[in-house]
Amino acid sequence: MASRPIRPFSSRDAVVCRNVSKVWADGTDRAHPALRDIDLDIAPGEFTVLIGPSGCGKSTLLYLVAGLEPETEGEIWSFGDRVAAPSPDRSLIFQETSLFPWLTVWQNVSFGLSIRGTPAAERKAVAREALHRVGLTEAIDKRPDELSGGMRQRVAVARALAMRPKVLLMDEPFAALDVQTRTKMQDFLLDVWRESAASILFVTHHIEEAIALADRVVVFTARPGRVKTVVPIEIPRPRDPFSPRSEALRKELTDILRDEVDRAFAEQEALAPA
């Protein structure tokens, strides 16, 4: 494949993807293309939401940006540096909860600081601050299995915030929550985002959630994922989910996504043996 010329980009940008492709198990007979030619720019302090059909490579892109997996082709940059390995500047909140069950809540939150050798008293103070921001100060000495699913996700958010990352990567963090808790968590996330000035790349399946949160919604095609459309959401916050503009955007995004899912299923059907 002849590689395309690289579009110029600013070294101020929080995340820059240029011609990024990912093939899982590349070079084997199980090779499995997940992403193709992704071009994406995320400005400092921008809230970008990623949606797309299941299995289209959204989590894969977050893994690449976090530096946990190498890209097969293309380049990923963050604030002027090529992404080659994980960095505390880019925190990833995983799709499944990933708190260490053998640590208490505050020890989980300050795990990254303990890696750097910060003394315990200081760590606890930082943890308390981060937990305060997610409204869980009273759970500070509990263990993860004593918390509800939503509380655990908030602890995971606090853990990511305690690292003071410049880029926050979030993989369907609120997928398991009920509508009310989810709305609360969204409000809280927007508060945290405003305070921290971090750039956020947020994956979700919920169009309502995308419209409630995003500065821009990036829609992926079915696998291998490519950027299909970018829809800016220019509604001032706080947003009313039932305003006519929200309704119109919801319809627009639903139509785009339905097309894509239909196309994915049609392709599957064509590939399936008769």
Partner: peptide
Amino acid sequence: VNRNFINVACTMGATKFQIYARVIIPA
């Protein structure tokens, strides 16, 4: 051991030794 545990430690800048001592052994 759950891959996510190891990935979390990686994103927080843990060294290989720290990953073994702090994550893999307790897990």
